[in-house]
Design a protein around this nucleic acid. Structure first.
Length: 902
RNA sequence: GCCCAAGUGGUGGAAUGGUAUACACAUCAGACUUAAAAUCUGCCGCCGCAAGGCUUACCGGUUCGAGUCCGGUCUUGGGCACCA
């Protein structure tokens, strides 16, 4: 090697090896027919923000990189790709502020992210790099959407949704957080809970000691924490609820953190119960409710319908009309903020004047309206059983409604004092008295079903997925709107039937009805037009709505081709059409990117069947726990859908999932600009090198734990890497260390520690316990350094073990030891179990469980001999004098415990 | 309120029911050096002169033996939140 200086000069060799890997395409994935088993390691791809790489990125990426390099050394064909989740709000906000196209800014950010990732030496196949903003990529995002559209899983709704004025777009429920907001009069400023230190006596702001007052919990946007409000806006919605059951079932077989599985299960929120129909006195309409407690039907003392329930106006009596109207007015004016304010759960409501008939006993019970019943869940109506439901109980107390106990042993339960929500034998329930709740549930449901007044039913908390954003910088929908009359003229053999749903998807725009028609796969991708301004309109419409040359087109009902309306209609089947101006949310592109890595340039399919068959799904997926419901649920939905329509061979995308913990600032707080505790990877690499950063991130603690960064702690790793360097390289000559020789005598201790290290590093990489793998390498270092001479193979093995963690310095040492190829091409070391065996072991002698002495003995020493040794030991005898023997415990190879009394 | 996870030296952390504090960081003391950096050596949970005693958030239990298993309490962090 030219210029072989003996000093540990990481800037020189880190650059050199990064160029080497690039030139030799060291980490390029082998072709499908290479005959090697595959291993697919996936990182959650980053959003390329203007701020550059966060220190949390290299944490997860180093973990997966160690795994990838380890599997490579074991002979696997490893796929370890990287790409960019490049559509998103910050680029668009930048565009609004500067007028610069988001595409340009995004490209700049991607280049910076790529530079930073390459600087860290990740074993990534850069030939497979992808960006969700690339038309060659989002062509298939649009294609998947059209498949959903064709299967009737995409529809348009104009129900109220969360709208964020600051971001100028709607947000999915999942993108809205409930946050405590505080006001600080001294600073004339509102603060979020994360910015306020709450003390026992009240709250004080973190700056100075200014008093603050709580403004209560408010809904805020997850991104930017801006205020959000409810607005009715026309939206595309994906019917994820149709997959609720499958999404729950699929979780069972996955090797995921239990907490994440539980989170998804709770989010989907399956409830089993019954629908029960109540007749309404004096009305032909009836009222159907959903309940999980049909067993408590005899205890129903009133009914509640949501304020938005369609029966509200129908059943309200004239006497109650004004009271109901004023209540509805109050509810309407109640900001959503107040309605969801959880600090104040005081029940409000109003009587409709109407009565329902309980189908089991004919009892006449009043129907109320209350906003604690949600129109969006179940049937928007409930039967209230105050004795056995806390919310109903509170309401009954508030409005002095009767509370009738139907479950539980009467002696211990007082339902006038609190609701009893446990199970128990039935009382006051006619023929069901004495039966268990469980039996009663089944029997009552069956009885009602026989009379046509009920059936068992399942409900989910999961809502359909709000899939459109009023933005420019997203995938355009490959959809146009035409008049129903034109829709009726679509020829039977039209190419657009490729994606045409069985039922038209309607939508009302400015009082006129339109039907949605798709482009064909030939017209994909539909790319974004250039626009003059990225500013969203105050009405909440997308900036695309102003690009009328693009939106107003002639549409060919046969082929799906389009021509701008600035030109005359090209033919008789060409009808006036308006393009959909919303764009898809950022989640769309991240729903399926792991599939595209498999076959990133395929023009005919999202990936070829052969490639999908060989690579399957990622064997390992690592990313932050913040995506536990959003990304991971959406991606599972799309994957399962593509499986159901025969596009994919597997039902679930991610078999094994891992969440790395957060890297906190040195103060133990979450890193943030405002706290000034942000650690920049560029700075660390400059000062300590990429190897040190990688290894230190892994040494900080368990991968899954949140742990604070320490700028001092990294020196321990730097020292270790320098010691590794000196173990192999002579600092004066730059050649092989003079300690290394063929005749080197190595102690039994050193050989055993080497094999122990091979064993532990291998096991710890498999189980992602990198911190302890590094500790073991340090232990080996402490032993190896003391050895006057070393075998070449010992040093080589050591360097190989460290290579996945600190690849640059290990490549450099490997080369100095005389190898020409990359260290990753050398086979992973194997340990010899025979070398792990110790001839003698240390035995501990205990008296009453306390260690009093130790002794080094031959491994096979018998129980009797051990006991004799223990009893003879003076430090043991001291504690036996004058005591009576109770018991003797002897664990060969470990300990002797003598139990005495008195 | 409900669900979950975690509490071990000054700090990050380690520990198949079997010597708690491995491995590091920091501090301190020393060696080398004209000096600094780098490097190396040693000490390093608490009380105690010592013998010894105490110690894994707290209280109790199981066990010859508990950081580890069981029950309860407290604290911190995360998730959900009127979902019938």
């Amino acid at each position: 090697m030219e210029n072989a200086s003996g000093t540990y000069d990481f800037t020189a060799f880190e650059n050199r090896w990064q160029s080497f890997w690039k030139e030799k395409a060291t980490f390029q994935t082998a072709p499908l027919n290479c005959g090697r088993p595959k291993y697919y390691v996936l990182d959650m791809f980053p959003y390329p923000s203007g701020a550059g790489l966060h220190i949390g990125h290299p944490e997860g990426y180093t973990a997966s990189d160690i795994l990838a390099r380890y599997k490579l050394a074991q002979g696997f064909n490893v796929l370890h790709p990287m790409g960019w989740d490049a559509f998103g709000l910050p680029a668009e906000q930048h565009a609004i502020a500067t007028g610069e196209s988001p595409a340009i800014q995004t490209q700049r950010n991607i280049d910076n992210f790529r530079r930073q990732l390459q600087m860290l030496g990740f074993a990534i196949d850069w030939q497979r790099e992808l960006a969700t903003t690339d038309p060659g990529y989002f062509r298939w995002t649009q294609w998947i959407f059209l498949q959903l559209f064709r299967q009737g899983l995409a529809y348009v709704s104009a129900k109220p949704v969360w709208f964020c004025p600051a971001l100028g777009t709607v947000l999915a429920n999942e993108e809205v957080l409930s946050m405590e907001v505080w006001h600080c009069p001294a600073l004339q400023k509102d603060l979020l809970d994360s910015e306020v230190v709450v003390t026992k006596t009240g709250a004080t702001s973190k700056v100075g000691n200014h008093p603050v007052t709580s403004l209560g919990k408010q809904p805020r946007s997850e991104r930017g924490h801006h205020p959000v409000e409810r607005r009715p806006i026309r939206q595309w919605v994906l019917r994820i609820t149709a997959y609720a059951e499958k999404l729950i079932e699929g979780l069972d077989a996955l090797d995921w953190p239990d907490s994440t599985k539980r989170l998804q299960k709770n989010w989907i929120g399956k409830s089993e119960g019954a629908e029960v129909t109540f007749a309404l006195e004096g009305h032909t309409d009836s009222l159907t409710v959903f309940t999980t407690r049909p067993d408590t039907l005899f205890g129903a003392t009133y009914m509640v319908i949501a304020p938005e329930h369609p029966l509200v106006t129908k059943i309200t009596t004239t006497a109650q009309k004004s009271a109901v109207e004023s209540y509805l007015e109050v509810v309407k004016n109640k900001s959503d903020l107040e309605r969801t304010d959880l600090a104040d759960k005081k029940k409000t409501g109003v009587f409709t004047g109407a009565y329902a008939i309980n189908p089991v006993n004919g009892a006449k019970i009043p129907v109320w309206i209350a906003d604690y019943v949600l129109m969006t869940y179940g049937t928007g109506a409930i039967m209230a059983v105050p004795a056995h439901d806390e919310r109903d109980w509170e309401f009954a107390k508030e409005f002095k409604l009767p509370i009738i106990q139907v479950v539980g042993a009467d002696a211990e339960v007082d339902v006038q004092k609190a609701a009893w929500t446990e199970d128990g034998p039935m009382v006051n329930s006619g023929p069901f008295n004495g039966l268990s709740s469980l039996e009663t549930k089944k029997k009552i449901t069956a009885d009602l079903a026989a009379r046509g007044l009920g059936k068992s039913a399942v409900n989910f908390k999961l809502r359909d997925w709000l899939f459109s954003r009023q933005r420019y910088w997203g995938e355009p929908f490959p959809i146009l709107w035409i008049k129903p009359a034109d829709y009726a003229c679509i020829p039977a053999d039209a190419a657009i039937r490729e994606f045409l749903p069985a039922q038209p998807v309607p939508c009302t725009i400015e009082g006129q009805e339109f039907y949605a028609v798709p482009l064909t796969s030939k017209q994909l991708p539909l790319t974004l037009p250039a626009v003059k301004s990225y500013q969203p309109s105050p009405t909440g419409d997308s900036p695309l709505s102003k690009a009328t040359e693009w939106t107003e087109v002639w549409y060919d009902l046969a082929t799906g081709q389009t021509v701008s309306q600035t030109q005359p209609a090209p033919g008789p089947l060409w009808v006036k059409a308006s393009r959909e101006t919303n764009t898809m949310p950022q989640w769309a592109g991240s729903c399926w990117y792991y599939l595209r890595y498999i076959d990133p340039t395929n023009q005919n399919a999202l990936a070829s069947t052969e490639a999908l068959k060989y690579w399957g799904c990622p064997d390992f997926y690592i990313g932050g726990a913040e995506h536990a419901v959003l990304h991971l649920l959406y991606a599972r939905f799309w994957h399962r859908f593509l499986y159901d329509i025969g596009v994919l061979p597997t039902a679930e995308p991610f078999q094994k999932l891992f969440h790395q913990g957060l890297i906190l600032g040195e103060d133990g707080e979450k890193m943030s600009k405002s706290r000034g505790n942000v650690v920049n990877p560029d700075t660390i690499v400059k000062e300590h090198g990429a190897d040190a950063l990688r290894m230190y991130l892994m040494f900080l603690g368990p991968l899954e734990a949140s742990k604070p960064w320490s700028s001092e702690g990294i020196s321990g790793i730097t020292r270790f890497l320098r010691r590794l360097w000196r173990l192999a390289v002579d600092e004066n000559t730059g050649g092989v260390s003079t300690k290394i020789s063929a005749q080197a005598q190595e102690s039994e201790d050193l050989v055993r520690e080497l094999h122990r290290t091979i064993q532990k590093v291998e096991k710890d990489i498999e189980t992602l316990q990198f911190n302890t793998a590094i500790s073991q390498m340090m232990i080996l270092m402490n032993v190896a350094e003391k050895s006057p001479s070393l075998q070449r193979s010992t040093v080589e093995t050591f360097v190989q073990l460290a290579a996945p963690f600190a690849p640059h310095v290990c490549e450099e040492i490997w080369a100095r030891l005389g190898h020409t190829g990359s260290i990753t091409q050398a086979a992973w070391p194997k340990f010899d179990p025979a070398k792990l065996v110790e001839s003698s072991v240390e035995i501990i002698f205990q008296v009453n469980g306390k260690v009093r002495a130790t002794a080094k003995v031959a491994k096979e020493t018998s129980k009797e001999a051990l006991l004799a040794l223990a009893r003879a030991h003076p430090d043991v005898q001291k504690f036996l004098e004058g005591k009576t023997l109770v018991k003797e415990v002897i664990v060969p190879g470990r300990l002797v415990n003598i139990v005495v009394a008195g």
